[in-house]
């Protein structure tokens, strides 16, 4: 393990000391590639901690620019990056924290036409998106591509995390087969969100990612973790794999990616 530089020995010393990480685990992190959907509330802390941990390649996709209303919770951005693409802002922040990390900033929308190609070279996908069409698109694409997916969601004071290992455990459609009708579930924009909530949920997502890369511990496979910030409670709900799931079941009806936006808009 003499390939670590002296700076790396210092930077990662608290990892190297852990029996579950060590020099070998740290090398795995440095060689790992993680794809993050969204550079917002969840994407910021996930990317920030993965960068700190030394995950060598982090791609982020988001088509938005930084707005003042983001700064109550999106900790990778600042007043200095207002109006700039979120992915550029996050890239600067993460690379300042850790120059070992290569951040690939993708200022575009993720869609059924680009997702399979974009995620194909990555080890783990993280969903930090804020809408149902993207959540279902990412789920279906990860199931089809066989990519581990760490999914997170937040609203008001409540957050959810689950880890999808295609072929082994449940997927998002085993949990909620169809998207809820548009307008039924309010967005953060309509309903608000406690600024620190994505920090907790994103921290949990980043932890899941690190364990997947290291191959240590247990992840939220076949489980949904629900955090209530008002009550300070964590609740785990079992999510069995649905043998009749339309995307990951034994006879799937969804065999190629759908037009999720159109589907969502007609569901009102």
């Amino acid at each position: 393990m003499s390939e670590f530089t002296e700076d790396q020995l210092q930077r990662y010393s608290r990892h190297i000391i852990l029996p579950e990480v060590g020099g070998k685990g740290q090398k795995k992190l440095l060689n790992a590639k993680v794809f993050i959907i969204g550079a917002g509330g969840l994407g910021c802390p996930v990317g920030y901690y993965l960068a700190a941990a030394g995950v060598g390649t982090i791609a982020m996709i988001d088509n938005d620019e930084v707005e003042l209303s983001n700064l109550q919770r999106q900790i990778a951005h600042s007043v200095k990056t207002l109006g700039k693409p979120k992915v550029e802002s996050a890239k600067n922040t993460f690379e300042s924290l850790n120059p070992d990390v290569n951040v690939i900033a993708l200022k575009q929308r993720i869609s059924k036409d680009n997702i399979m190609d974009l995620i194909k070279d990555y080890d783990v996908v993280v969903d930090g998106s804020d809408n149902f069409p993207t959540r279902y698109l990412v789920n279906d694409a990860c199931v089809m591509a066989g990519k581990p997916l760490v999914s997170g969601a937040i609203l008001r004071f409540e957050g959810q995390v689950t880890t999808i290992i295609p072929g082994e455990g449940h997927c998002y459609r085993c949990l909620f087969e169809e998207m809820p009708p548009a307008g039924l579930v309010p967005s953060c924009q309509e309903a608000g969100v406690l600024g620190v909530l994505p920090g907790v949920v994103g921290g949990l997502q980043a932890t899941e990612v690190l364990k997947l890369i290291l191959g240590k511990g247990d992840v939220l496979k076949n489980e949904l973790l629900i955090y209530n910030a008002l009550k300070t409670t964590f609740r785990k709900v079992k999510v069995p794999k649905n043998p009749d799931c339309p995307v990951c079941g034994s006879n799937p009806t969804i065999k190629k990616l759908l037009d999720y936006d159109a589907e969502y808009c007609t569901m009102q």
Partner: peptide, 14 residues
Amino acid sequence: CPYTFVKAKLAVED
């Protein structure tokens, strides 16, 4: 410390 142990541990890992 902790670099004494870091170096020793990395040597043992190899």
